[in-house]
Amino acid sequence: MHDKIERQLLENWPRLFGYAVTLTRDRDRASDLLQQAALAALSATSPPQEPVMLRAWLFKIVRNNFIDGHRRTIVESKHAATSIEETEVWGFDDRVIAALSVRQGLDRLAPDHREIIELVDIQGFRYAEVSDILGVPLGTVMSRLSRARLALLDVIGGTVRSLDRARRRSRGDRLG
């Protein structure tokens, strides 16, 4: 079993590191967190047998170690009341969605939003696996993810709008 865990650790090492960075927002702390999690995984007495479950289990260990280390839970964002009505017309300009703006947008999201987007879109977990990793019901995963994406679109749109404003201001200064 030790071999299986070690193989999974190796195969998922870059992804686990990405997740640890998302949790800690710091490369050095992420590195420490990951080493602790790896030792915890290798010392586990009853890990899951299935490789797919083993992978989700490793992410859960990283998360639990992070929570233990910080003696806190990942605070659920309270300001995430952004919603869209079905009757609203979708006016989002897809051209603002690009790797760079998305990366900047992710940095500005609430931790729980950033985390769930990371697990689904970057790590490729199914909703059921995310539910297990986070320890929340499936319905919560769905609603939290959809709110998180809306918040991300909002942040990206906001960034672009403020850039537009800056450009307009700069143009106005030159003209003035």
Binding site: G18, L34, Q35, D94, A99, L100
Partner: peptide, 25 residues
Amino acid sequence: ASLARLKACVAEAGKSEMPPPLRTP
């Protein structure tokens, strides 16, 4: 379409830094 594009860009943005070495016993 917006969601699909967002999902693809997040996956692209997630290809990030080089991880530290794995120190296994």
